[in-house]
């Protein structure tokens, strides 16, 4: 097990990502933020509260569950159970920022794009991720905002821990053969 981001750096990176969003979207009047269930929502919550605090505005922020849009339904052993989807505004012609904790194969993001288009036609879709595991993509998908890029092999696992759920803020790299999670 190896720590990739410790607690102090963790917050600096998230604040940088939030500031990059502010720089690009400025007033957020045509922008909506969508956290991908389950663990992208933790990151999205932090970013949304940071931006709302700095700009003193209310963002349009929703949560998206992609369970029914997965492409590995028949190959996985267990049935995936859905989380809540909560998008209470129109995304028609809006700039949508998808937020997830780790960008790995790109399949979750593909599902998320398919799911979000069922809610309307956004003018633009962007992707924000805390960790980009480069060289492991199985689809042509890139992030627009990246917290940290790491090199890892397929058998390794990257886990983002959140204080509100896992009692501490940290990103760790697990060698799945040696580390029992």
């Amino acid at each position: 097990m190896k720590t990739i981001l410790d607690k102090n750096k963790f917050n600096i990176v998230i604040e940088r990502l939030a500031n990059q969003l502010i720089e690009n979207h400025y007033t957020f009047d045509q922008t909506v933020l969508i956290g991908i269930q389950p663990r992208g929502v933790f990151l999205a919550d932090r970013i949304v509260s940071y931006i709302e605090n700095i700009l003193q505005i209310q963002l349009q922020y929703g949560k998206l569950d992609i369970t029914f849009y997965r492409d590995d339904y028949h190959t996985s052993k267990n049935v995936h159970l859905p989380d809540i989807t909560n998008i209470e505004f129109s995304i028609e012609n809006k700039k949508v920022v998808l937020i997830d904790d780790v960008l790995f194969t790109g399949r979750t993001i593909r599902s998320a794009m398919e799911a979000i288009i069922d809610f309307g036609r956004p003018s633009k879709v962007e992707l924000l991720t805390l960790i980009d595991r480069r060289f492991s993509r199985q689809l042509p998908i890139q992030a627009d905002y990246i917290g940290l890029t790491i090199d890892s092999i397929l058998s390794q696992k990257v886990k983002v821990l959140w204080a509100e759920h896992d009692k501490k803020d940290e990103v760790i790299l697990l060698d799945t053969e040696n580390d029992k999670n």
């Binding site: 029914f68 809610f119 309307g120």
Partner: peptide
């Protein structure tokens, strides 16, 4: 919830 959306369909 899905049945209340404009597109009442998922591809699962």
């Amino acid at each position: 919830g899905i049945l209340q959306r404009p597109i009442k369909k998922v591809p699962s």
